[in-house]
């Protein structure tokens, strides 16, 4: 690890998912949720419940049965009234990262899959450091890889190893994977979906399944530069890498223009679809340095602080 490049940009070129320098930057971040969930165990996160943190929340009148220890005796001394001093409870957060491992993700320069893995690793690391419950799911037509319920910094190595060991295969079927996730995943929290969202079955049903869990959902669409600006010309028979479907095209100026317009429309439609349903949508080309994505874009979107 000591020989790892210090410059995050050079990390892009290596297979290494996270560098120590980047991890140290990530240490300062935490994953935010626009919703406040009740955790299961005491964590580092403010809970809806009043609890035992150091953060003052409110006063209330004593009722019989309250713990005498939490009575604010100073108030009683001054006002001769029994008031309880309430503190914010701090609980943990469920952070679930769903990342696409279908064949189509293993594409592009820079590679979409590696990019997705890095984002997943970074977010998972943040979660681990903040003592959140981190769940990682790799999906193609269903959930094929999962690492759930890890908590604490000590799982970092295990988590990275898990991610590195994942191969890209199969075809993506987001709806099925989301349904699967909805059944499997208990508890609320933050759900991040990293995919290209190029799913011939559509993404709408999958989004509905995710929403059913009442989670705080983030959708990150990752596309390679080859998909955004295709460098194709001539009369081609295009072969889909996932399902070997073919499309015969004669690449002409008008066709390229039409493709780009369609891509634009597809992304806009996805964004609108997400936004209407309270899902935060984030588009990223793999050419964007992923540290910039994490440190800047995700911050702007309010996912991390």
């Amino acid at each position: 690890m000591s020989s790892a490049p210090s410059n995050p940009r050079r990390v892009e070129e290596s297979k290494q998912l996270l560098t120590p320098e980047f991890m140290s930057k990530l240490d300062a971040l935490e994953i935010l949720s626009r919703k406040i969930f009740t955790g299961t165990v005491k964590g580092e996160r403010r809970s809806k419940r009043m609890g035992e943190s150091v953060e003052f929340a409110d006063y209330r009148n004593y009722v019989v049965g309250d713990d005498l220890r939490v009575i604010d005796w100073n108030i009683y001394a001054r006002l001769e009234r029994l008031l309880l001093k309430l503190f914010m409870a701090e609980e943990d957060l469920n952070v679930s990262v769903l990342f696409d491992v279908s064949k189509s993700m293993n594409w592009g320069k820079p590679n979409k899959g590696l990019f997705a893995k890095r984002v997943a690793a970074a977010l998972a690391y943040i979660g681990l450091v903040r003592m959140d419950r981190v769940n990682l799911y790799g999906f193609n037509s269903r959930l094929v890889h999962e690492m759930t319920g890890i908590r604490g910094r000590r799982f970092t190595g295990q988590m990275i190893k898990f991610l590195e060991g994942i191969e890209f295969e199969g075809y993506s079927h987001f709806t099925e994977a989301a349904r699967h996730f909805a059944i499997r995943h208990r508890g609320k929290g933050v759900v991040l979906v990293i995919s290209d969202f190029f799913d011939k079955g559509g993404y709408a049903d999958g989004v509905r399944y995710l929403l059913s869990r009442d989670c705080d959902i983030y959708a990150i669409q990752v596309l390679s530069p080859e998909e955004i600006e295709p460098k194709l010309s001539g009369d081609l028979k295009l072969l889909d890498v996932e399902d070997e479907d073919t499309a015969e095209v004669s690449v002409t100026g008008p066709l390229l223009a039409r493709y780009k317009a369609n891509l634009q429309a597809y992304c806009s439609e996805l964004k609108e679809h997400c936004t209407r349903r309270g899902i935060t949508y984030l588009f990223s080309a793999t050419t964007v340095p992923f540290d910039v994505l994490v440190m800047s874009y995700l911050r702007q979107r309010g996912l991390v602080r």
Partner: peptide, 15 residues
Amino acid sequence: RKQETVPSTLLWKRA
């Protein structure tokens, strides 16, 4: 036609 592999033919077909 020359065969060319792409991640997805979805958008091409639409185009």
